[in-house]
Amino acid sequence: MPINIAVVDDHVMVREGLIQLLELDKDIKVVGQAGDGTQCLELLKNMDVDVLLLDINMPTMNGLEVLKIMRERKDNTKVIVLTIHNEVEYLVKAVDIGINGYMLKDSDSDELKKAIYCVNEGETYIQPKLSPMLNSRLINRNEDEKKIECLTRREFEVLKLLAEGMFNKEIASKLNISERTVKNHVSNIFKKITVADRTQAAVFAIKNNIITV
């Protein structure tokens, strides 16, 4: 039985090129396509799809939002994110939500087909050149989690407000504490999360989802 594939990408030429490439393989059958996230979710309601090739940057709803909804629906369709993004943050977010594969669009056809076969068999396929980057980020994230655990509840609150752009005086007013106390908390936070200034602290908070932007 062929593997039923759906291709989701807002660029028509990319989508059609992928479909033509995949249809050369007798073990793969393209059963659907979509140009945005909303169309993708509708497609999945009406078609039996084994593996979904999903772009990240799309109108109406991006690929990660689609993936999140799919997992909330308990949709067991295997998903390979196929994207131009080689930034580790996109990859980590996709892994956290629940991808089965992650490939860059400059991959060759043999590697893409290998990924499709792997995820269809229940394995996870991360493009090999991305794996060191992912592993390094996950190690760093574990270290960051330990740093966060060292923060007191009040220090965590101060870090969150600091990262949202508040000055010490505003934080003091918000938490009903003295400005001097805020300064002490900020100093302790910098030491515990090993940053040198407020900008680095804000980046730390964003990177670890303490605040969202």
Rank of each mutant, 00 (worst) to 15 (best):
G37S: 07
A115D: 07
A163T: 02
K26A: 11
L130R: 07
R153Y: 09
N208Q: 11
L21H: 00
D50M: 02
E157D: 15
N57S: 13
V49K: 10
L43I: 10
L54E: 08
R71A: 04
S131A: 13
I177L: 08
I211N: 06
E164D: 10
D106L: 02
D75E: 06
L21M: 14
E123Y: 14
I56T: 05
E155Y: 04
H11K: 08
V158K: 08
V203M: 05
I126W: 11
T124N: 10
V203F: 06
E145L: 15
L161E: 02
V81M: 06
V31S: 08
D10Q: 12
E157F: 06
K160H: 08
Q127K: 14
M133I: 13
G63V: 09
R154C: 01
M58E: 00
Q127F: 06
A163M: 02
R198E: 14
T212W: 00
D27A: 10
N120D: 13
Q200S: 12
N46P: 01
P59H: 04
L91T: 03
T152L: 12
N120W: 13
I211Q: 05
G98A: 01
M61V: 11
T181D: 01
I211C: 06
K160N: 07
H85K: 14
I206G: 01
T181A: 09
K68R: 14
D106Y: 05
M166V: 00
P132H: 12
I56E: 05
N188Q: 13
A196E: 13
K174T: 03
P128W: 07
G63P: 07
I193S: 09
K192T: 03
H185E: 15
M61L: 15
M47D: 03
I211F: 02
E111S: 13
G165L: 02
V31L: 11
C118L: 12
E121V: 00
D36I: 06
S136P: 00
K191E: 15
N140W: 10
V7C: 11
M47H: 15
D75R: 02
I206F: 06
Q33T: 09
P128M: 07
I97V: 14
G101Y: 11
L18N: 06
R71E: 08
G32E: 03
T199S: 12
K45W: 00
L24A: 09
A94H: 05
